[in-house]
Design a protein around this nucleic acid. Structure first.
Lengths: 197, 197, 197, 197
DNA sequence: CATGAATGAGAATTCATTCAT
DNA sequence: CATGAATGAATTCTCATTCAT
């Protein structure tokens, strides 16, 4: 099942694509409708045919991106193999998406401080949607004796916190680790923590 | 030893205090010099007497905040007790600072995507400054047989990634966990991960 | 043949007309976009819809004025009559244009000290464009035994230098000489100098 | 008789020197009190101890410069030799002063369009002061049968018009003529005009 | 479906100037 | 004689948005 746009209007998509790129580069406030018009190849006024206002564009982009992240993550969480294999797949998917294009989603978290209700709701839904597949992954891991039983939500927060941090660190430091190494490091930390057992 | 401003100009500090609050609420771009003038009680032009431009204010605030975070964290990392006690103190300190006032520091990470050299340099320094005390904490933990040997930098990224994520999650969900519970959850995840050992 | 704007946008021209008047009165730096907006009857933001910035407006005005001056001067230089008649026509044209509206062009020379490349280029082009018709006028005057052979460029500089000076002097002193008298005085000086032959 | 400052206050002169340089580069409106403070090495507030306002500084600079130009020109007009020699000396002096430092005086003419009474008065005085020595030079030239009799004022306007124009032309084109050549060209034009006698 | 033209509100920044010390 | 601090008014320019065509 792929992401489904109810209506595929080419110029509408051109706007969303251009906006995704701008948001990824500059967050919410850091780009203007003028830039969006230039980048999308449409006139400013035309954009207002497709979207109510800037906020609407921002939300539409996020919606699309988060839908994609959640869908791919759920797929990875349900991939074949044991729980650790599937957790590895989830991590791999996250890093791939970030590398590929979806830094936008990080931007959403960043802007969250604005505390705008709509944005917070979106992010809550994002976490909620992930809770089910990740929860199932964790539960089956426990049944397979691979994971110890932990609170699903805490684990979710931990998993994505570590992954975010590694992505940020990589951007900041320009780390040259291969994708595989990055995935294994994350998995190690996630599975064993730093304690001596 | 507390943070020491070489020169304490009252109105300069009034600007920095007002700016900290605005940055905490709205990030970098989300506030105007007009608002800052109102909040600080000074005229717009007066602010430019003390700072070169908006970027200068932003950086000065961050500098101060990060200095404080790093200083407090280093203190906690060197507090009495075994390695786990001291790690607990570090975590506690981080959450306290965030709760108290220092959400600003999160904002820095958020805005990092702007990829402005100055900001990135600041964040790099922040991580570098933390590497020594946290590294010592980890090493002594290994010597006490409490921690397993892990790469210091990876551990640092993991520790702060988890803490960030919990702070964000708390803001988003409005979690009612007590501070103590939050600290223990974090410590659990950090020490044991989710794996079954 | 008159000045021909490839595209005649009414409000763009309103801006140029208002700007011409302001530049004539106050030079480059001595007027503000607010005044221009008031004078042109458009909103400030609308002006920026038509022009990139203040410099762009300034240059566009100059371009138009200088084109007009050069065109009219060339016409006069090619008018019927002997070389002296035609020189008289050139002088007459210059004074008429200044009196009519085109003090702006003087302003350009004044502001030249700013040494901005764009402005200098414009002025160089202005001189170059005049060199051909004035050169022909001088040459034919020599053939008619009315002028002595002189370097074209030196003569051009001299002619316009004297005319500029008389315009300035008139503005300063409020001279009441008739236009005809002014033209004849200029012609006398130009033809005979002050030497005794 | 040399230029006489009633009181020689060192910091006052520092301001005037800095202002002269700024005016030469940027005209009246193109520099700020901040720049003047930097350049003069004094605090902005200190400048206001010595001068009433910006206009006062501008006028004081002009006053000083024009006094110098007039004094030197009068000296040259009264130098030994016949009338043509002395005219040559006047021209030479003008070009030397411009080259040396006194482009400021050109700036005054430029800004004249502002039509501020004070400035116009200054420039009128400048012309009036020159009228006597130049008039005498012309008269003696007539008596020596070197010049033909012309109206003094017209001649003054012509002489300075041509010189201005050559200075401007030189700045614009970056002409590499030697000072001597420039002087002789000017003299030629001035004496003989372009007519065939 | 598309757009050029238009705009009020507001952005950051600079201005010449004043005043307490 | 000197200055750091302060400011109201003004600067250029950008913003998201609307509307007639």
């Amino acid at each position: 099942m792929t992401v489904q746009n109810t209506l595929e209007i080419p110029s509408r998509d051109a706007v969303l694509d251009a906006a995704r790129s701008l948001i990824a580069d500059h967050g919410y406030a850091g780009w203007s409708m003028r830039e969006l018009a230039n980048k999308s190849g449409l006139a400013k006024a035309t954009i207002y045919h497709h979207f109510a206002d800037k906020q609407d564009i921002y939300m539409s982009v996020l919606e699309r991106e988060i839908a994609l992240i959640n869908e791919r993550t759920a797929e990875a969480a349900n991939s074949p193999g044991n729980a650790i294999d599937r957790l590895r797949a989830v991590i791999r998917t996250f890093y791939d998406l970030q590398a590929e294009r979806h830094v936008v989603f990080m931007s959403a978290i960043r802007e969250m401080s604005h505390n705008e209700t709509q944005l917070c709701n979106l992010l809550r839904r994002y976490r909620n949607d992930l809770l089910a597949p990740i929860g199932q992954l964790l539960d089956s891991g426990v049944r397979e004796n691979l994971f110890r039983p932990v609170n699903d939500e805490m684990a979710l927060v931990t998993i994505f916190g570590i992954m975010h941090s590694f992505v940020t660190h990589r951007l900041l430091i320009g780390d040259v680790k291969t994708a595989d190494e990055l995935v294994e490091h994350t998995l190690q930390m996630l599975l064993n923590g730093i304690g001596n057992h």
